[in-house]
Design a protein around this nucleic acid. Structure first.
Lengths: 182, 182
DNA sequence: GTTGACATGTAATTGGTTACATGATTAG
DNA sequence: CTAATCATGTAACCAATTACATGTCAAC
């Protein structure tokens, strides 16, 4: 149930409406915790009802501005300081690797090559983000820099691994191709 | 909907009962695609009903052995060769990083240090797995070796990153501690 | 006046988790 | 005979996704 904590975390910096919050998810948290509009509005309602948030202003078009309460901050701190993060990631790209023998060696190598390219692309995108962001903009950007670095290292590792794996299969693939030819 | 493909993939190697399949999930796929018993039995039923699997034997205790059908293989191949993997990972550990400024510098550094240790532990566990597995045991173990290497590299990267990040904050933390003292 | 951004919500469905519930067979 | 393993299923619940639905305000 980390969505609630992501929202509390964003609201700890400053109050926002559901609409604002969504934009902040899209810009800063998309890569670590994507959220949809329905989810955000639904959760805002629940958090307000349980007293972790409160409505501090109403504006045009039914705009409601939410702020974190003392209990909200307590819950957020509790989550950060006294619980351990869930670490089970499903990884579809890696699941496929287990079944690569069902493809021809060439297809398998092509799969890994595409993965390498995709990782490189994503890394390039992150680098773009890094250049655009104003790094003198509050605590969130300091932390954001750490998270960004994680992303860069992850994508670099993925690219290297995929190229290595392709090479591992490549030997076999090439050998089989040779055998087929002769 | 990758669970179905994971199951088809395992059954492509050889037929199995729900019970067998669960054990194979636990041993080989836990790290990339965990599945619960309810899920496995539920999905087996659906896959049999839609003709991607068929029951090839019934044994003691109501045991039903499932085998992949031609359509099942076609679906599996389609998934492998003609679709791109979903790549959005929610990452709770990294989400927390965005909000580390809500902790004291010492707590934040401690969080990252714990993350580094955890990554190291998980890496050690994977190394254990690598030593135990019989690497001459069919195509799944060839592919498994590639997946294992991914895990090793991932955990190594996570450990290095967490140590680096702790150092980044450590400067600030130490400075603040000094300021507090004087 | 019309387009685009602002703004909020609900409903249906899917995928996954946890808990419950039951019973047969084998090995010691 | 008793414990462990084998074996299958259902029900309730939760989180997330997609689609639907509505309406306001500002700028041009």
């Amino acid at each position: 149930m980390s969505l609630r904590h992501a929202m509390l975390g964003l609201l700890a910096e400053r109050p926002a409406s559901g609409y604002d919050l969504m934009k902040r998810f899209e810009t800063s948290l998309t890569n670590v915790w994507p959220a949809t509009q329905s989810q955000v509005y639904g959760e805002l309602g629940k958090l307000a009802k349980t007293g972790l948030l409160e409505i501090v202003a109403e504006g045009p078009r039914g705009r409601k501005e939410y702020a974190i309460t003392a209990e909200g901050r307590a819950e957020l701190r509790h989550w950060l300081a006294e619980t351990r993060p869930e670490r089970s990631h499903r990884n579809e790209a890696l699941l496929r690797v287990f079944f690569l023998d069902l493809l021809t060696p060439l297809e398998a190598v092509a799969y890994l090559a595409t993965e390498a390219e995709r990782a490189a692309e994503l890394r390039a995108e992150l680098e773009q983000v890094g250049e655009k962001v104003d790094w003198d903009d509050g605590p969130l950007s300091v932390n954001g820099r750490l998270a960004l670095e994680y992303g860069l290292r992850l994508r670099a590792m993925q690219e290297e691994w995929a190229r290595w794996a392709a090479e591992q299969l490549g030997g076999a693939g090439a050998a089989e191709s040779e055998a087929g030819k002769s």
